[in-house]
Structures are given as structure tokens and as C-alpha cells.
């Protein structure tokens, strides 16, 4: 379903020193340093799998998601998803994927959620029957009916995240990328979002890649984790093994120890 092989991506970042004098100097002469955001990333994901993509801040998680969703072209390496190279056939490819950025909304702020959904239906040209079927399924699994006629700005964060995920599934994608879908949510909302992801995955064989800092998300959803640090894949395997290896019982401790072990 998804195969990444030896993906490299380097960013040019302007060096900044503090102070007004340095800021003035940077107007005329800028020094750049190269940051290896992705340094030979390879992994494979099968259809219907849920993969937890973890790593500390700045490890390259979001960059990977951007490459896989076709909005960033890597410097080298190959990426095949459903037979597409994401950045080459962008418009054809994005029809088949859903992407949720936990920190940003894709819905229209001032109108009821249902209006946003209708527009998305038209953008993706979803046939009416398929749209109705998806909407019914989503309504059933996350209780959309409670807030579908409310403007987005009046929703709680938990409701909003559920609406976001639902919105990215209206066009029946085969792959769903979730970038920190539980960030900032309260406990009941986190549980609801997890249950929702699990139900949809079971129901439609949807392939899911999610990034998160909350290891309870991983624990609840999947046993497959891919750990990335400083642009390199450091571990790809069972989450249970990581847990067994550790003396700690609290998940946060387990992960902190794991990051220490890899000097992240």
C-alpha cells in the first residue's frame, strides 16, 4: 500500500543570531545551514494497517506526512502509495487520501459543519449515494448529529476534531494521515476519537498513519510503531516489545527512556 525507500529531504534554514545588529546584518548577508529533515527514510505499510509514527518534536514526522501526502517533494528517494508517486500525480493522487492536521482546520469557520461537508462533497465530486452512505456511517460512529448543524466556531475542540476526521473521510479515501489528532483534547474526546479511528479502520479497511505524542493513542489503536529521530528510522516493530524491554510501567516513562536510549 505504502512504500517509502531512502527518502531524503534537506531544508535550508537561515542562521539567526539575536540582537538588532545581527538582524540588520542579516538583511544584507545571510548564512544558511542545512538541516537533514529526512535522512534516508524507508518503511512499508500494508493495506488496512494502523501505524503509529512517533518521535520527538522536530524529528521529521510532519515532513514525512507532507511527502507522503504530495505537498512536499523530497530531494531523493522513492515513494509509492497505491501505485502513485504522490508529488508527481498530485491532483489524481489526493483524491484517494485523507489528511488531518490536528493544529489546523480544513473546515469553514463560520458556517454549519454540514455546509462544509456539502462543499467538500462537490470538491471531491463524491456521488450522492456514496456521500449519503459515508455520512450515515460517520454519524453512527461519532455522533455527528449532535453538532452537524452548528457553526464550527461554536464547537468544542473535541467535537471539532471529530468533525475534522469525518470531513477527511467523506470521499472514501484508502489512506488516512492523522498528524496529532488528539492534541489538546480532554479524556472523553480522546477516547471518542480513538474509538472512531478503530471503528472506521475495521469497517472500511482504511490504512491509517498517525503521529502523536500521546502513547496511549498508540496503545489503544495499534501494535505497530515506527520511531523516527533526527530524520532516521530508528525502530520499526511492535509497541509491546518496547514496553516489555522497559523497566517502567508508565508509558511516558517508557518513551522517555526510549528517546534517551537513541540519544534524541
Amino acid at each position: 500500500m505504502i512504500t517509502l525507500a531512502n527518502i531524503h529531504k534537506t531544508f535550508k534554514v537561515a542562521k539567526r543570531e539575536k540582537g538588532t545588529a545581527a538582524a540588520l546584518k542579516s538583511l544584507f548577508h545571510r548564512e544558511y545551514r542545512r538541516v537533514h529533515a529526512l535522512d534516508g527514510v524507508s518503511f512499508h505499510v500494508d493495506e488496512g494497517e494502523i501505524v503509529g509514527y512517533i518521535g520527538p518534536n522536530g524529528a521529521g514526522k510532519s515532513t514525512s506526512i507532507k511527502v507522503m501526502s504530495g505537498i512536499l517533494v523530497p530531494d531523493s528517494g522513492t515513494c509509492g502509495i497505491m501505485g502513485y508517486t504522490p508529488w508527481k500525480q498530485r491532483r489524481e493522487y489526493v483524491r484517494h487520501i485523507g489528511v488531518v492536521f490536528g493544529q489546523r482546520t480544513q473546515l469553514w469557520w463560520d458556517v454549519p459543519v454540514s455546509d462544509s461537508f456539502d462543499l467538500l462533497r462537490d470538491i471531491y465530486k463524491v456521488p450522492q449515494s456514496e456521500y449519503r452512505r459515508n455520512l450515515d456511517l460517520l454519524t453512527e460512529t461519532i455522533g455527528l448529529q449532535d453538532f452537524i448543524n452548528t457553526p464550527l466556531r461554536q464547537l468544542s475542540l473535541g467535537q471539532r476534531m471529530r468533525a475534522e476526521i469525518a470531513a477527511s473521510l467523506l470521499h472514501s479515501p484508502k489512506v488516512l494521515f492523522l498528524d496529532e489528532p488528539t492534541i489538546g483534547l480532554d479524556a472523553p474526546s480522546k477516547l471518542a476519537v480513538r474509538r472512531f479511528i478503530k471503528d472506521i479502520n475495521a469497517e472500511t479497511k482504511l490504512t491509517v498513519i498517525l503521529t502523536t505524542h500521546d502513547m496511549n493513542d498508540i496503545d489503544a489503536l495499534t501494535d505497530r510503531v515506527v520511531l523516527i529521530g533526527k530524520g532516521k528510522i530508528l525502530y520499526d516493530g511492535a509497541f509491546s516489545e518496547i514496553k516489555n524491554r522497559s523497566d517502567h510501567s508508565a508509558l511516558e516513562e517508557v518513551i522517555a527512556e526510549l528517546y534517551r536510549e537513541y540519544e534524541l
Binding site: K66, S69, G70, I71, R90, R91, E92, V94, R95, I97, V99, F101, R104, Q106, I123, Y124
Partner: peptide
Amino acid sequence: RQGTFDRVLLRPRN
């Protein structure tokens, strides 16, 4: 600046 152009690229439209 706000990164909303990423969303534009994620839609199968011009």
C-alpha cells in the same frame, strides 16, 4: 504564513 496553502494542495482541484 498560516500554512493553509497546504490544504489547497491536498484538494484534487486547480
